[in-house]
Design a protein around this nucleic acid. Structure first.
Lengths: 172, 172
DNA sequence: TAGGTTTGTTTCAAACTTGAACCAAGGCCA
DNA sequence: TGGCCTTGGTTCAAGTTTGAAACAAACCTA
């Protein structure tokens, strides 16, 4: 089949998306670097931990939720551990595993910096969207994410699809 | 003022957006790394050059269009130059300036790899969107980008807004 | 239960990004 | 003209990301 090129509408949408998402990530990274001393990704790691039961998650679980690779997470957690925001514990039920735990200092940092972060997200993104667009945004990107995770990254044949990691739970 | 926290709708939209945009960038980076031997950003640089008159642009101009910092661009162009996809030329009218020029090899690489790239963008993004959503996407992100570029990065006061770089033109 | 495979995580080197500092060259103006 | 501020680009060190390889524990299965 010959290439299905993008239509002019799609072209424009793609460009706008790429431009805005770069600018947005940069703005948020800068703000968090200033206020929290860490890039957005690291902040997200803390945020995800803070919502988990007992503020702890298996590394792989955390990697999945934050949508990053394991090695990237290892590096990040090591840094956050140095900062004192996270602590690592071994997993008693599976001695291969290690668990990242949000410390009290990490919790405090999150509470201190969350308002500024939210304000930035608002100012950069949501202040430009109507409530209807917010709903659209969620719908679109939920679909896109579903298409991408746990399978068919691009054009991988469906044979490889039925792969799904078992949810490892709080490991306890 | 107390923090304007995100509404549940906004929360969900934000999470979906973050997750999908990470997955999307990863997928596209992987595909281009495979097929073109370079990450998406580098490919974009070539793409932008290919559309410029005479396939050449001032560094700063190129940085603006690709939405990246100058130092990042310097690094990228140096690499692309080593690959032979880009050549640097001095700017005759302003001896501070340097111009990135897309070489024939760069053009060939672009032509060879564009179909695969477009196919990936389609499979990962546009195949999940209705034509109406495509229009919405463009509208939303155009607004967001406008809000972010050339001013008010987050919560910078309007005093700093009226900054606008003069479009330097093809320089020649 | 030994051997082979899978799974969870880390490690390592190479590539990339960041932000501040630097170096020209251009512009402005007394 | 001589300073002085601005602009266009690069450089440098420190930090981050990548992908492949290494490990170790868990899980088969014969």
């Amino acid at each position: 089949m010959t290439t299905r090129w993008l239509t002019p509408d799609e072209q424009r949408a793609w460009r706008a998306y790429i431009a805005a998402s770069h600018l947005l990530e940069d703005a948020i990274d800068r703000q968090l670097q200033q206020e929290a001393g860490m890039p957005h990704l690291y902040y997200s790691i803390l945020a995800h931990l803070s919502e988990a039961p007992e503020r702890r998650l298996r590394m792989t679980d955390l990697a999945e939720r934050t949508k990053i690779t394991r090695s990237r997470l290892t590096y990040a957690v090591t840094r956050l551990e140095k900062d004192g925001a996270v602590r690592r514990e071994g997993c008693p039920s599976d001695r291969r595993g290690s668990i990242a735990v949000l410390t009290d200092a990490g919790t405090a940092l999150l509470e201190r910096t969350a308002p500024g972060h939210v304000e930035t997200v608002r100012a950069t993104l949501f202040d430009h969207l109507t409530p209807e667009q917010v709903r659209q945004l969620e719908e679109m990107f939920t679909g896109v994410a579903r298409g991408l995770q746990g399978g068919s990254p691009g054009s991988v044949p469906p044979e490889e699809l039925p792969w799904r990691r078992r949810s490892s739970g709080p490991c306890a």
